[in-house]
């Protein structure tokens, strides 16, 4: 079945749910730190990233210079490069540059996570659907947080804090339970990630680096041990056929 806009919109609901709670926390933090109230709204509207925006609040309130801002954001976003490289392999080859540029704006961790678990070839409409609902949730949550910290009572915010993590588990677990190489990837990454938390000198390393190192290490080891089966080829050809239908 071809993925449509409404499929993307539906798949994006758990993302939006999680985003509202995270964005409320972000909006509150920005207001508490004395940032001009328009700035968190503008960040969510124009930047659309979680970790980066939390770092942004800290950078602005500590009067960081632009070079420091650029460096911090780039370090946090190294993993985005990896995710975009990976997602690029799943896009139909014929997708135009303007469409790729539009999709890139919404390629957040969560949108990426949901996209890679789709078995069907990704379409532009599907991607726009999932990005749009996520973006609405993110901006709605930010506005809620900025306008009133009482909008969502603390117990509900605490509970909603787990939503995005739970969604990631639902993404990771099903394919991993059926593939030994993937199970080993997850085991290595999880183990190293725990080390980053418990080993004192590793614990000072920022989460952007941690995620990047764990991802490269786990995928690298398994890529050497278990190179791809040739069946992947066919999927690519299916993508091409679908895009031709799209053009007519």
């Amino acid at each position: 079945m071809r993925l449509r806009f409404k499929d993307g919109f539906k798949d994006g609901i758990p993302i939006a749910l999680g985003y509202i709670s995270v964005a409320v926390a972000f909006g509150i933090l920005a207001a508490d730190n004395g940032l001009p109230l328009w700035s968190p709204l503008l960040m969510s509207f124009a930047v659309f990233t979680g970790t980066g925006q939390f770092a942004g609040v800290h950078l602005i309130s500590s009067h960081a210079g632009l070079a420091e801002v650029a460096f911090s954001l780039l370090v946090i976003n190294i993993r985005s490069i990896l995710m975009s490289v990976s997602l690029a392999q799943k896009l139909p080859k014929e997708m135009s540059v303007p469409r790729r540029m539009a999709v890139a704006f919404g390629n957040t961790d969560e949108v990426f996570g949901v996209c890679i678990q789709k078995r069907e070839p990704l379409t532009f409409s599907y991607l726009i659907g999932i990005i749009l609902i996520s973006y609405l949730g993110w901006n709605f949550g930010t506005a809620l947080g900025v306008l009133s910290s009482a909008a969502l009572p603390l117990p509900i915010r605490s509970a909603m804090g787990i939503a995005l993590y739970a969604m990631f588990i639902a993404i990771i677990l099903p394919p991993v339970s059926e593939s030994r190489p993937l199970a080993i990837v997850v085991a290595i990454s999880g183990l190293v990630s725990v080390l980053f938390r418990v080993v004192p000198f590793l614990a000072t390393i920022g989460s952007g680096w941690k995620i990047t190192i764990c991802g490269i290490l786990a995928a690298g080891v398994c890529a050497v041990l278990f190179p791809e089966m040739p069946e992947k080829r066919e999927e690519g050809e299916k993508n091409d056929v679908n895009m031709k239908e799209d053009a007519t």
């Binding site: 993993r79 990896l82 995710m83 490289v85 990976s86 392999q89 961790d109 990426f112 996570g113 890679i116 787990i162 993590y165 739970a166 990631f168 588990i169 993404i171 990771i172 394919p175 991993v176 190489p181 993937l182 990837v185 997850v186 290595i188 990454s189 999880g190 190293v192 990630s193 725990v194 938390r197 941690k210 995620i211 990047t212 764990c214 991802g215 490269i216 290490l217 786990a218 995928a219 690298g220 398994c222 890529a223 050497v224 278990f226 190179p227 791809e228 992947k232």
Partner: peptide
């Protein structure tokens, strides 16, 4: 090898985001 790396990468990244932070 590169293709396998890119297939495995998302799962490595997502796992590092979830464990132990959840």
């Amino acid at each position: 090898h590169v293709s396998a790396f890119l297939t495995y990468l998302p799962y490595g990244i997502l796992t590092a985001m979830v464990i132990p932070d959840i």
